[in-house]
């Protein structure tokens, strides 16, 4: 099998022994041991496997690893700053005590981060539409919504200052 060169969270990885059509999810989890990205449905229905590929929120459960070659992959482990400073969304998730079981939350945060990155001024309706592919079985939607809204406000004030 060909060696695949991946860029994940700013680090280079040479992956061998993995078929090119292997979903990125399983390479992240089983090969690179980045288990923050979760498995939920395997058919892009729940969003718990969401990562960023070149900044785009991507369901890694159905995304062949070969397509990620030459692109920047960011997982939940790489969202915080290099110095460990949490992304405003991660901090907002803590401040709003969002999680119950927490299993879907890495995917929710990655989805929200990509949305706000692309559209910092997103309206509530746009955010709701953008988040509609991420399921939460525990039903923490109210808090997710509140956390995104407060992180958005913080990001906007930061953006205004810089």
């Amino acid at each position: 099998m060909p060696t695949l060169l991946l860029q994940v969270n700013g680090q280079k990885h040479e992956v061998t022994d993995v078929a090119p059509d292997t979903p990125l999810l399983w390479v992240l989890r089983d090969t690179l041991k980045l288990t923050g990205t979760k498995f939920g449905c395997g058919i892009e229905q729940c969003g718990v496997c969401t990562v960023h590929v070149d900044g785009v929120a991507t369901r890694s459960c159905n995304y062949p690893v070969s397509q990620a070659v030459g692109k920047q992959v960011v997982t939940i482990e790489g969202l915080a700053g290099k110095d460990g400073t949490l992304h405003p969304l991660q901090q907002a998730w803590i401040d709003h005590d969002v999680a119950q079981c927490g299993y879907c939350q890495p995917g929710q945060i990655m989805q929200a981060a990509a949305l706000l990155q692309r559209n910092p001024q997103a309206t509530e309706a746009e955010l709701m539409r953008g988040m509609s592919g991420n399921l939460c079985r525990c039903g923490t939607y109210k808090r997710i919504r509140d956390a995104i809204t407060s992180a958005q406000a913080q990001l906007q004030s930061k953006g205004g200052a810089s």
Partner: peptide, 23 residues
């Protein structure tokens, strides 16, 4: 009072070990 979950930081950084993450 309102107290946040003890595992909140591990949840949002992907560090919390669920059953499926055991290695």
């Amino acid at each position: 009072r309102r107290v946040g979950g003890v595992d909140n930081k591990a949840v949002v950084t992907g560090a919390l070990c669920y059953g499926i993450d055991v290695s």
